[in-house]
Design a protein around this nucleic acid. Structure first.
Lengths: 113, 113
DNA sequence: CCGATACATCGATGCCTGTCAATAGGAGTT
DNA sequence: AACTCCTATTGACAGGCATCGATGTATCGG
């Protein structure tokens, strides 16, 4: 099965109203918190910056710079995918990761108008 | 002692280079992760939105909307203060909270150029 | 088909965090 | 001083999370 996409399935609405605009509903807060939780780990931030600063990055090029085991890297990529922050595409044996700039912009828009 | 400030003391540098620019160092990642960790809880996000959308908010006006006990609210305000996202000022018996827009903008700038 | 490679999943472990009851601290009021 | 109100801290508990070794799954080359 080549070229299959690995991307987030669930709703990617992410109410884009800035925090300073009006109070978040309980439901919105849970959604937004999920994204920031994905960004709340140093290893994931560095992983994301590696992916976002390059065009496409293979998982095998992540273990080294991150200094983490393969299962740990796989865990973190999964969290970032579920948050909609990165997408992965399997080509042959490798999975190539790339960032989702729109999602990063959404999260940023919530913090600052 | 009236009018005393309650604000974060530690370094508020928060390397403002966007994730898509260059890879974060290990140290930078830890700093940035701390801020996002403060934003990774639904209760704290709603607390922050309540504070940021109003001009100043008293703690006594937070317990109700948040539906949490007083110690829990106090815990969350503390986390937000340590992340530099809000500041508190004691006036008489009440503490008045307000957001720190610059800090929110810093965090947003890391996510999107 | 068989071995090697790349990634995902599982199970276990240790640490961190959200929550609240109880208690302490601090500031105004009488 | 004594009392009351608001907030911070402590202690304890439950749940969540990061990490890694072991194992499973899929793909390519010989």
């Amino acid at each position: 099965m080549s070229g299959r996409r690995l991307e987030v399935v669930d709703d990617d609405a992410l109410s884009c109203t800035p925090l300073s605009r009006e109070a978040l509903s309980e439901h919105e807060a849970v959604d937004v918190a999920r994204v920031f939780a994905a960004l709340s780990d140093p290893v994931r931030l560095r992983l994301l910056s590696l992916v976002a600063s390059g065009d496409e990055v293979c998982s095998c090029d992540l273990e080294g710079p991150l200094g983490k085991s393969q299962p740990t890297v796989s865990h973190h990529t999964r969290v970032l995918v579920e948050a909609g922050l990165i997408q992965g595409e399997r080509r042959g044996r490798w999975v190539w990761w790339r960032a989702v700039p729109e999602r990063l912009a959404q999260a940023a828009a919530i913090l600052a108008p």
